[in-house]
């Protein structure tokens, strides 16, 4: 992990509250793996904490992130202009683990939570990915064309039926579960909670990328903990350094 200066090389509003931000560095970036995140400076001196974002895509010198405008920090980031400089620490967290041991992998994403799942479908060309992406409505749908390029099948579900299937992505992946060796997922708390219940009796691993309010991002401050069952005991583990990916069976929701 390293603290790196980035220049905003592209910024675009992709729907009413989601921004696509491309950050480019003059130096070669440290090796990043799918599912890792970065901790990004906010261009407002009164907002002192950095903000953690998963890395959607990357190459040797640039990273692409998607951010939902949910508060003052993300609003300040939305107003960034091309050419502005800001720092980010990366790569953070463990990313998705043991992917090589699976062949057919179900991808379950909810809203902006689909973002950490894309790169894995791009990296493992010898695997078969089947994506189930859920959104509130057509105008909030994201990433679909990218997943269509990397996945064998991409099912889109919207709550109101304005795009793809009507209903929840979780219900559609549930029907096809027999086809997969593992499921990889990310999404809002409600989805994680529902998935924990839905998948409680299945034997395949379900890896979930969690989100938590964070400060240092490197394991020092202990503020981003979540309760995890380990060796039959509940422990507070750090999402930043012991996660953000956990087996859903261990996650307490």
């Amino acid at each position: 992990m390293k603290d790196i200066s980035f220049k905003v090389s592209d910024i675009k509003l992709v729907n009413s509250d989601t921004v696509r931000l491309v950050l480019t560095s003059e130096e070669i970036l440290p090796k990043i793996t799918a599912g890792q995140f970065l901790n990004l400076e906010v261009p407002d001196n009164s907002l002192i904490l950095r903000r953690p974002f998963c890395i959607y895509d990357y190459d040797n010198t640039s990273v692409t992130i998607y951010l939902a405008v949910v508060g003052k920090g993300t609003l300040a980031l939305k107003n960034l202009k091309k050419g502005e400089i800001l720092k980010a620490t990366l790569p953070l967290g463990n990313g998705f683990f043991k992917i090589n041991t699976y062949k057919n992998i179900g991808i379950l994403g909810g809203g902006i939570g689909c973002a950490p799942l894309f790169r894995i479908t791009k990296d493992y060309k010898d695997k078969n990915f089947f994506a189930y992406l859920g959104f509130n409505s057509k105008d909030k749908a994201l990433f679909i064309n990218d997943f269509k390029k990397t996945c064998k099948k991409t099912i889109v579900a919207t709550n109101d039926g304005s795009l793809g299937e009507k209903g929840y992505a979780l219900d559609f992946i549930k029907k096809d579960i027999a086809n997969f060796d593992a499921i990889i997922m990310c999404g809002p708390h409600g989805l994680v909670k529902a998935a924990k219940e839905t998948f409680k009796n299945i034997s395949i691993p379900v890896l979930v990328s969690l989100e938590q309010r964070m400060a240092c991002g490197v394991g020092a401050c202990l503020v981003c903990t979540c309760p995890i069952i380990a060796d039959e005991h509940q422990k507070n583990k750090r999402v930043c350094i012991e996660g953000p990916v956990f087996d859903i069976k261990e996650v307490v929701v």
Binding site: R213, L222, V223
Partner: peptide
Amino acid sequence: REGNAAPRIAETPSGILNSVGLQ
């Protein structure tokens, strides 16, 4: 010690509130 439940941090103007609880 396992410390307090999360969220353990809130950002306030030019500051932060923490409640780690000595984990």
